Structure formats: structure tokens, C-alpha cells
Measured scan of single mutants.
Amino acid sequence: MDPFVVLVLCLSCLLLLSIWRQSSGRGKLPPGPTPLPVIGNILQIDIKDVSKSLTNLSKIYGPVFTLYFGLERMVVLHGYEVVKEALIDLGEEFSGRGHFPLAERANRGFGIVFSNGKRWKEIRRFSLMTLRNFGMGKRSIEDRVQEEARCLVEELRKTKASPCDPTFILGCAPCNVICSIIFQKRFDYKDQQFLNLMEKLNENIRIVSTPWIQICNNFPTIIDYFPGTHNKLLKNLAFMESDILEKVKEHQESMDINNPRDFIDCFLIKMEKEKQNQQSEFTIENLVITAADLLGAGTETTSTTLRYALLLLLKHPEVTAKVQEEIERVIGRNRSPCMQDRGHMPYTDAVVHEVQRYIDLIPTSLPHAVTCDVKFRNYLIPKGTTILTSLTSVLHDNKEFPNPEMFDPRHFLDEGGNFKKSNYFMPFSAGKRICVGEGLARMELFLFLTFILQNFNLKSLIDPKDLDTTPVVNGFASVPPFYQLCFIPV
């Protein structure tokens, strides 16, 4: 058959498939802009700032609406009420993970971030239990974070109060905490193996944040037939998995079943207990991918939040002064901060919360999916439909947070200066898919920041009023603009 005829037939089939998918069930789905064949609503979305586009569309179609990214149908949730109703009140029905062709290629359905069903539930339950087990290797997770915080302070001392970009050092600290939990080992910041790991993690975040990856996920045929950065992403992930597998083999040879040292040991012990169960989800494949998931999810998000926190503290020296006064009063100079201190430091706690609220790190979270046909607000959402959640619409709700575009710790303080919780605080998402490392991340943010401010004054290279804190939105995360500062020993 003539190649031209084959091409026309293929394009015609794709067009018909697109029209059929977009028209099927439209009477039951939430409203939304009319999609174009094949490309859907992509032309109506700013790929570099999806969150802003969703906010604009919500003003037209309401808090629940339908979009098509290519052939992929998505239902968008915008605003606290619908997000709570879906992710919390109907948590089980909305607990699936959205379709990610690239991740599915890399992870093969294993791990904790992109798995679904029984596998996801069992691996998540085990990971939560293990991360909360403060007795691994007779050292609590808090001990590990405190140790890394001391190392971080010593690295900052080496800058000798000269101007520096904190990106690298602030990236090393949370990565080392995860390494300590998974591998029972922290690395020197100049260790070549550690630097290679950091390089792969950072490069992957840069790649994932590009519009090209959005295109690959919406048109998965590209993955096999086109060159691009997605190939580098898959190569980096394969490198990390190979490295983790080597460490798993080392653990198998040296493990003491009665004295687990780290996450890998705990997983291997669980595998041993379930070795007679042919349906067990505790396999080497799941261990390797879960460890890679924890490394990827637990490094860049925390380091970016820390980097943004220091920029905001530079911009608002009056806030920094209040935090340091609270540190001096509650902790002093002669001991290290600990998590028990947080309950006695409402202002510092409010500042950490406000940093996370203000920066809105992951504006749309990772997409969910419905696990069955769901009736939601008089609409029928078919099983498997991807759910896109606007966390921006919750964290920047102007009824809950007056002047949401302003950095103001009073958003989390009552009139008496006591810490005030808010149900709208969802930087880790909400419901059954809430970030498994939430507790660890909150511990790291509090301890790293208090250790830094206990030991250093922060000095800006320019007038604080002239510092730009506008986030650089890159399609996946909101990151701070480049800046330098000086760490002046107190």
C-alpha cells in the first residue's frame, strides 16, 4: 500500500478516535471549553503556568470542569470545598494515580508514587510505618536530621561569610537525610558517588519541569519514536535504579534480621516474612523503585522550600529577627534545636507554614484518578478519569488567608500570638494520596531553619526591599529566582 495512503488512514483513525473520546459521556461530565481534535484544549493552557490557566477557566466554568490534554480527559478541581469533598470525603474513590506514560515506562507500575490498587496500598502502608518507626538502627529519624543539620551548619561556616548561592548546600542536606534513612549512610558533600546522585536528581527535576515532558505524557507515541530530553530522564532513572540495586545486594549479604539498620533492611525482612506468599507485593523490584521514589520526592521539594525560605527571610528581616528572638528565648545557644521545641515556638512554626503556603511549591499536585465511576456534584466521572487538583486555589484562598499574595506569618497566628491551624494548609496535597514523607519534610524544615538561624545572621547583597521573591514557574514547580547571601556567624 502507498505510504501516503497509510499515513492518511492513520491520521484519520487518530482523528476519529479523538472525536469519539471527547464526545463520549460529555453530557455527564462537568462543563469545559470545547476541545480541538487530537490536541484537545492545549492551546487554551499556558504550559509554563498551568495553575494560572486553571484559575482563569474556573471563573468561566465553575469549581469543577473538564479539560482535554491531547486525548487525555481530565476533570479539574478548583477551590477548597471541591478539593476537600473529593480528596477527603470521597478519598477512596479519588485515590488513584493519574496516567503518566513516562513514569509507567520507567517504574513499570512498581513503587509508591505511580503505583495503584493493592500494590500501592500495601507499599504505602509499609513505608509510612517504617518512616514513623523511630527505632531503626537504634537511631531515631530526628537524630538523623539533627546530625545532618549540624553538618549543614559546618558547611555554611566554610563560606566564611562571603557571598554564596545556597542551592547546592541546601540540596545536599535533605538528600543526605533520605540516604541515611534508606542506606544507613550519609555522605560527605564532596563524595563523588553522592555528587553523581545529586546531579541525576537535579537533572531529572529540570527535565520533568519542561513543556516537552508534558507533551510526551499527552502524546506517548513520542516516547519511542522521537529524540528528546525524555530519553535522558529514562537513562538517569535507570542509572539510579541500578545503583540502588547494588546497595540492596550489599544489604542482603550483611543484614541482621533482628537489628534492621535502615529502610532497605526493613523491606528485606518483610520480604523474608512473605516469601511463601506468591501474591506478595514485597519484591526486589518494588524495593528498588520505592527507594528511588523516596529519593526523588524527598530531596528537591525540601531543598527548594529551604532555598525559598531563606530568600523570604532576607526580604523580611523583621520576621527573621522575631524567629531568632524566639530561638534565643526557648533554645538558647548551648544546645541543639529539637522537635519538642516546636510546641513552644508558635512564631517560628507560623513562619515555616507561611513559607510553604506562600511559595505554593507544587501548584497542581500530582494528578489523581478516580478508581470507579463516581457521581460528584451531579456529574458522572468515569472510572480512570484523571483528576487535576489546584492546590493554589486552596493555599491562596483570600477568605482563609487575607492578602494571600503577601508573605505574612500572621496567617497562622491567632490574636494572642498562638499558632493557628488551618484546614486550607495543603502543600502536601490531601486525602489518601497525601505525601508519604510529610512528617519528615516538616521535621527537616523546622530543624534546618532553626539550626541555621541559631548559628548565623543572614545578610543580603542588596537592599532587602529590592529582592525579587516572585516565583519562577516552570510548569511543574514554583522555584525561587537566583540569589546570593552571606551567612554571618553569630
Rank of each mutant, 00 (worst) to 15 (best):
A149C: 09
E328S: 14
I327Y: 00
F183G: 08
C338K: 13
T290S: 10
F401L: 01
E444D: 03
K232Q: 10
K84D: 04
K118W: 11
E199P: 02
L440N: 02
T167V: 07
E438N: 07
P166D: 00
K459G: 06
F263N: 01
Y80S: 05
C13L: 11
G117C: 06
E72F: 04
V82N: 05
C10P: 05
G416Y: 15
A161I: 06
I207L: 14
E285D: 13
K48F: 07
I362C: 08
N133C: 11
I178P: 01
I181V: 14
L102H: 06
L413R: 01
F168K: 13
G416V: 13
E142A: 05
K59Q: 09
A309T: 10
I141R: 04
L128A: 12
D262G: 08
S12V: 14
F267E: 01
A292E: 08
N217G: 14
Y358Q: 05
I462T: 13
M443I: 15
G27S: 12
L287E: 00
F487E: 02
K138N: 08
N107G: 11
L29G: 07
L90F: 14
H230E: 04
V75T: 04
E326C: 01
A103P: 06
L388Q: 02
K249I: 11
Q252T: 08
T392P: 03
D341A: 05
V208S: 15
D463N: 07
T364G: 08
H344G: 12
I47E: 06
D349L: 09
F65T: 04
L170V: 10
P480E: 03
D349A: 08
F446R: 02
L361M: 09
Q340T: 14
M129G: 13
D373R: 05
K200T: 14
N56A: 15
V82P: 10
K383F: 07
R97G: 03
S18C: 04
Q22M: 10
K190D: 10
G25H: 14
L245V: 11
N398W: 10
V319Q: 05
K275E: 10
R125T: 12
D46C: 07
F219Q: 04
K247A: 12
L245I: 13
V472S: 14
R125V: 08
R97D: 03
K399I: 15
I42R: 07
G437A: 07
D397I: 02
V323W: 01
I182S: 03
K185S: 14
H344K: 13
S390W: 02
A477H: 15
L11M: 11
S58A: 13
M129V: 15
H230Y: 08
E104K: 01
E246S: 12
D243C: 15
R333V: 10
C151G: 08
Y225A: 11
E272Y: 11
E438A: 11
F376Q: 00
G431T: 02
L11N: 05
L268H: 02
Y379V: 03
G416H: 15
F446C: 00
S209C: 14
G332L: 03
M240S: 04
M271Q: 07
E285F: 06
Q278N: 15
P30Q: 01
F134K: 14
M426P: 03
V83C: 10
D262L: 00
K160D: 08
E326M: 02
I45F: 15
E438S: 09
T348L: 06
V490F: 14
C179T: 08
D224S: 13
Q193S: 14
E326S: 01
E415D: 14
L391Q: 01
F126V: 03
L57G: 01
L361D: 01
E81R: 08
K375W: 10
E272R: 11
Q146E: 13
T210K: 10
K249E: 08
I223L: 13
S390L: 09
A103D: 05
L245F: 09
D265N: 00
K420M: 03
N41E: 01
L380C: 12
Q484K: 13
F446N: 00
T229C: 15
K232G: 06
H344M: 15
V436A: 12
T348P: 01
T159N: 06
K190W: 10
Q214H: 12
S393N: 02
K185M: 09
C172N: 08
M255E: 01
P166C: 05
K200G: 07
I257Y: 12
L268W: 03
P166Q: 04
I222E: 03
G437N: 02
P166V: 05
R21I: 11
V145Y: 00
T469A: 13
M345V: 03
T167Y: 15
T283S: 10
S12Y: 08
I112T: 05
Y347C: 03
L77T: 01
G228L: 06
R132D: 11
L29I: 10
L54A: 04
D265M: 02
D224G: 10
L461V: 14
C151S: 11
D143K: 10
L388N: 00
C266L: 13
F226G: 06
L17G: 10
Q276K: 12
V436K: 01
G62D: 00
P337E: 01
S390T: 05
A292S: 15
P404T: 08
E203Q: 10
F114R: 06
G296F: 15
L29R: 06
N398A: 12
V352F: 06
Q214N: 08
I213K: 07
L152Y: 01
S18G: 15
G298T: 01
G96P: 06
L314N: 05
L312G: 01
I39A: 08
E325V: 10
H316V: 05
C372H: 10
R26Y: 12
F110E: 06
V75R: 00
E104P: 08
F194C: 05
P166F: 02
F65E: 02
S95P: 03
W120I: 02
G96Y: 09
N41P: 01
M74T: 09
Q193A: 13
N457S: 13
Q356M: 13
V374P: 00
F456A: 00
L11Y: 07
D414I: 05
V248T: 06
F451L: 07
R206A: 12
F419M: 08
V75G: 00
I222L: 15
Q252L: 10
P317N: 07
K383Q: 10
P480A: 12
G62V: 01
L237F: 09
L195F: 08
I181F: 14
N56D: 13
D191I: 02
R108I: 04
S422M: 02
T290E: 03
E122F: 08
D165S: 05
F419H: 05
K158V: 07
Q276T: 13
K138D: 10
I331E: 00
E354N: 01
T299N: 04
G296D: 15
M136T: 13
G475A: 14
E328V: 10
E400F: 04
E415W: 06
Y225D: 04
P260T: 05
T386V: 11
G62Q: 00
N403L: 09
C13V: 11
D143W: 10
I434H: 09
G431F: 03
R21Q: 11
G384P: 00
K28L: 12
E154L: 08
L453H: 04
G296Y: 11
R157F: 13
I207T: 07
Y483A: 04
P317S: 08
V145L: 09
W212M: 06
T389E: 00
I47D: 06
R329K: 15
M240R: 04
K160G: 14
R124A: 02
N423E: 15
Y308E: 03
E92N: 11
I331T: 04
N133S: 15
K383D: 05
M271R: 11
I112K: 03
K383V: 06
L14S: 07
Y424R: 08
H230Q: 09
R144T: 13
L11F: 12
L43I: 07
E272M: 10
S478Y: 11
L131Y: 04
D49Y: 08
S24R: 12
G384Y: 05
D414Y: 07
K48Y: 15
V352A: 07
H344Y: 14
L311M: 11
C372E: 11
M255W: 10
N277L: 11
A106C: 07
Y424H: 14
Y225R: 10
Y424G: 05
D224T: 10
G384V: 00
